[in-house]
């Protein structure tokens, strides 16, 4: 039987946030959610702002929030290269909620102008953080 675990590294431009053995890694790729186990085909994808769940041995689950960046999969390793990465405990849920509401309100006003794109990014960021917090609570 093939290996059931795969080495997983999560690094951001500022620090290495996780490095260890994982059974499954669940990430939000640009074209949909991905669950990756050992022996996966080589894959390279962009990431959406959102949670990354890493299940290690003995069913322990770690949740991280990453923003922008890439996911590389090799049969024996998974690498997440994030622009920013946070441990879920470091996320300020209240601030994220506020940011979300603020962005939603602003988007309604700036439907057409050039701030729209920037606001969308802000909204995606806030939503991603909230999703990460929710995932961690489950």
């Amino acid at each position: 039987m093939a290996n059931i675990t795969v080495h997983c590294d999560i690094v951001s431009a500022e620090e290495a946030i996780f490095s260890g053995v994982a059974e499954v890694v669940v990430a939000e790729g640009i074209s949909g959610s991905l669950g990756i186990m050992a022996g996966h085909e080589p894959l390279l994808t962009k990431l959406k702002p959102g949670p990354i769940k890493v299940r290690t041995l003995h069913n322990k689950e770690h949740v991280f929030y990453v923003e922008g960046g890439f996911l590389e999969v090799q049969p024996d390793s998974i690498t997440v290269l994030a622009d920013t990465a946070l441990r879920v405990d470091d996320i300020d849920e209240k601030a994220a909620l506020e940011a979300k509401e603020r962005a939603e309100k602003a988007i309604a006003v700036h439907m057409q102008d050039h701030e729209f794109a920037e606001l969308q990014i802000q909204l995606a960021r806030a939503l991603g953080q909230l999703r990460a917090v929710r995932d961690a609570k489950q």
């Binding site: 790729g29 640009i30 074209s31 080589p42 894959l43 390279l44 994808t45 962009k46 890439f70």
Partner: peptide, 20 residues
């Protein structure tokens, strides 16, 4: 002997990755 699966398309992704 192998190639990646790219999401989205290879050109866009590689461009960004290389510049990064």
């Amino acid at each position: 002997s192998w190639d990646y699966i790219y999401e989205p398309d290879a050109e866009k992704l590689l461009n960004e990755l290389m510049v990064r």
